[in-house]
Write a protein that binds this DNA or RNA. Sequence first.
DNA 1: TTATTTTTATGCCTGCACAGATTGGTGTCA
DNA 2: TGACACCAATCTGTGCAGGCATAAAAATAA
Lengths: 243, 243
Amino acid sequence: MATSLHAHVVEHLGSRIVGGFIPRGSIVLAADLEQKLQVSRSVIREAVRVLAQCGLVTSTKRVGIRVLGPEKWNPYDENVIRWRLASDQKGAQLRSLTELRISVEPMAAELAAEVAPEAMRKELMLISAQMNHYGRQGDLRRFLALDIRFHALVLAASGNEMFANLATPIAAILRGRTELGLMPERPHEEALAWHQSVADNISNMDAQGARRNMESIMRRTHNEICSLWEGAPRVFVDPIAKK
Amino acid sequence: MATSLHAHVVEHLGSRIVGGFIPRGSIVLAADLEQKLQVSRSVIREAVRVLAQCGLVTSTKRVGIRVLGPEKWNPYDENVIRWRLASDQKGAQLRSLTELRISVEPMAAELAAEVAPEAMRKELMLISAQMNHYGRQGDLRRFLALDIRFHALVLAASGNEMFANLATPIAAILRGRTELGLMPERPHEEALAWHQSVADNISNMDAQGARRNMESIMRRTHNEICSLWEGAPRVFVDPIAKK
DNA sequence: TTATTTTTATGCCTGCACAGATTGGTGTCA
DNA sequence: TGACACCAATCTGTGCAGGCATAAAAATAA
């Protein structure tokens, strides 16, 4: 088998809960899961621990394993994000992530201009040059890979590990955008220029310039993909009820 | 016993790893842990699963439980944040969190002005009025509680669950600021006015105003506490090596 | 160097005892 | 009779102990 048994159980239950097939408030029994999934108690128990860590379930004595509602899910958990993107909450997840990156990336660019190590500035210049090249050529496949690397690098170069950690879900957004055909046939000249400018600004330690140009990229990105979440409902989590 | 046994093991190991007492690359054996902590294998295994979920360890056959380095830790995990704040990385953790909230809160205010439900707008007005009252009175204890509630509300009212989820660590920042005596004896009139304005703007659906005033709050906040992380080293995580 | 065997720690399974929360019944008192 | 406090039965997760299977490192042989 490709991956460990308990990981399979996590995947099975997690995707079903996030997908809405096991509604909030449901109570499942460990013994039933053993039988249904044909695995032993230890596997179930470890899987439930992991799911509890993600905020998908709690397990209490005498009652069983209770499925929690979306407001309890950890929205930064990689699994949760993946499961949401594969569900009918895809729009809402993309919106949340995009709003987050719009907030964070300009600050990341600003910080990168101040503190990035030399090697990262160099690589950023290299990447942006290649983006220009393959972008003008209309090679969207290669452009996508470079774009992902570019934004991941800026986030990493900020020296803020919370920013850097957003690289993976942001890569998912970028892939989604091309897969869904929301990219123009070839990247706009403006976009290419902004990426180049961000790299230049970071190289020259022009923090405000880096921020401004990254903001331009974010504005365009937002306009290109905000159609994806037309009508997706917003979730308002009362921070008190949360605890 | 107050909490479950395996949670104790998670706490024990997690705090030691994040605190640097079990250095990266260390390999601990489940059998040794059983003996040292006097618990059974199932407890150890479940705890290890949770720690693996946080990115603190991986467990592989024939080798044992390998302790991972900080670049693999999930910086959004509540436990990880708490353990870092209790370690000598406190400065770096506060800086990361503060940079994140500086990035996010203005956007949250802007969104809140557009989409917040009526009840939240109302409560925001109430809270800001009380902040004025207790702030002028110099009652820092009550002011702190209101400040926490205020920022949590704005984040929640944005309708972005990723924003809303930052309320807990941001509350930790705010508490830290007063505990460490970085607050002025009584809040500045400017700060009070900005909070009031943010509440007003959100009530009036003035998105740009809400953003601007929140940005002012963030600028001052940053200046007040950036002394906390003087000299704390930045961590640059290469997004490729990460995976 | 390459292939094979040995070693060894985790992965997985099962039986058992315990803890604690829910439920329902029992008895007391108004 | 009815409301309420108390207690016992029951159910389910929690924790323990020990066993076999398996994968990967290390040692050995080709």
